[in-house]
Every structure is written in C-alpha cells, then in structure tokens.
Amino acid sequence: MTRIPAPPTHLLYLHGFRSSPQSFKAQRLKAWLDHHQPDLHWWCPQLPPSPREAMATIDAGIAAWPKHAMAVCGSSLGGFYATAEAERHGCPAVVINPAVDPARDLAAYIGEQTAWHDPEQHFFFRPEYVDELRALTVPAVTRPERTLAIIAKGDELLDWREMSVRYAGARQHLIDGSDHALSDFDHHLPILLEFLNLCD
C-alpha cells in the first residue's frame, strides 16, 4: 500500500458543487479524526460559488499552515480544487470522484441553484465562473505519486474513465458500482486514512 511518508498535522477538506461542510463524507472523516487524531487541525470551509473567490478563501485560510505537513481532500468540484492546491503547495491530495473538466460540465448549470443541504438557500452560478474554472485548471498532475484518487465506476454524473486517465500514475482506488456521492464512503475510508498515514 502506497502512503505518504509522514502523517499530516493539518487537513483541508473541500466540498463539491452545491455542497457544504455538512457533506456526509466530510462529517464522517471529521468524526473519525476527532476520535482517533484529536490533535490534527481540520478545516472544511464553506466555499463561495465563484471559483476565484473559493480559491482566495482557501488560500487565506491556510496561509499560516505548514505546507510540508498539510494534506488536502476534495470531492467532485472539491477534488478539482484540491488538485490545484496540491500543485500550488506540493502537498498530498486525496480526490474523490473528482471533477476533471468542470468548466465544460458546469456550463449547463449557469443560473439560480439551490444548496444541497439547505434547499431554502439559493445562489447564482454566473457565466464568468466558467472562465474562472478554466483559469484554475491544472494542465497535468506533476507529482501523481502524492495523490490518491478514489473513483466509483457507478458515478452517475462523471465518467470514471476520464477521471482514471486524468490521474494516471496516481494511486487509484477503483470501485465497482457505488455512486457520485460515494454513499458507501465508510467502506473506503480506511484506504484514505492509510494513504495519509493516519492509521496503523
């Protein structure tokens, strides 16, 4: 089992499009860490709909973090952001059903949207956000060995083959079945923890 050399002291979790820090996966991971790694510094920010503002929020929040001792996890659009952060800071990343080309895919969602965990909350996905996503796209993952890609072949929104090609050379955990939300996340959590060297 490939794992990073040392466990991180700081862990950033980035949620997906229309999601929030109430993400099931984020909550399950945080609960495990609170119990088993209480000294680890955890942050899962609410990301604004603007990709440029989202990255500014992230970068401001981790400005004082030790980059040599941090890691980032992200799901779907959060996986896209996590890839960009890993390239910027040279840190390990775990991406879960990561968006490969969100500028292409989210162009269909321009307009008013509702938040997944609070349907009463609305936001507007603006046309310029597509250009912001395009500007954030990492041409290639330069150090794939520091990345774990958890990919569900049953993802109903994203093509698992495209994800697999994007993260060629990375440690890949391919799941037969499951779904975009990775509803069976608990089953795959040990693989994430082992990669990040957070468990024995």
Rank of each mutant, 00 (worst) to 15 (best):
S164V: 10
R161L: 00
E162R: 15
S164G: 12
Q172Y: 08
L174T: 02
A168N: 11
R166S: 05
D159G: 04
D176M: 12
G169A: 03
V165D: 14
R171F: 04
S178M: 11
D184M: 07
F185T: 02
D184H: 11
D159I: 00
A181M: 09
G177S: 09
G177L: 12
D184T: 07
H180V: 00
Y167E: 02
R166L: 10
H180N: 07
R171M: 09
A170W: 01
M163F: 14
A168I: 08
Q172S: 09
V165N: 10
G169T: 03
A181E: 13
H187E: 07
W160T: 06
L182I: 09
R161M: 05
L174V: 13
Y167D: 00
S178I: 02
S164R: 15
D184R: 02
Y167I: 03
L182W: 01
H180D: 04
Q172I: 07
H187S: 06
A181W: 10
D184C: 08
H173E: 00
L182Y: 02
D176Q: 15
L157Y: 13
R171G: 06
S178C: 10
D179M: 11
G169H: 01
Q172V: 10
L174Y: 04
D186Q: 11
R166T: 08
F185L: 06
I175E: 00
R166E: 07
A181C: 12
V165R: 15
F185N: 03
F185S: 05
H187V: 14
L158M: 08
Q172L: 09
L157A: 13
D184N: 09
W160G: 08
L158R: 08
W160F: 15
S183A: 07
V165M: 12
R171C: 09
L174H: 04
W160Y: 15
A168R: 13
H180W: 00
S183K: 06
D159L: 00
Y167H: 02
A181S: 15
E162I: 10
M163Y: 14
A170L: 01
G169D: 01
H173M: 02
D184F: 05
G177Y: 11
Q172M: 08
A170P: 14
W160R: 11
Q172T: 06
S178L: 11
D176W: 11
S164N: 14
H180R: 00
S164I: 09
Q172C: 08
F185Y: 10
H180G: 00
H187I: 12
L182D: 07
R161H: 05
Q172P: 08
H187T: 15
S178F: 00
S183L: 04
D186C: 02
D179H: 09
D184G: 07
I175S: 06
V165I: 13
G169K: 01
L182G: 07
D179A: 05
Q172D: 08
L174Q: 08
V165E: 14
D186W: 05
H180L: 04
A168V: 09
D159C: 03
H173F: 04
L157E: 11
H180E: 00
A168H: 13
F185E: 07
W160A: 10
H180I: 01
M163V: 08
L174M: 13
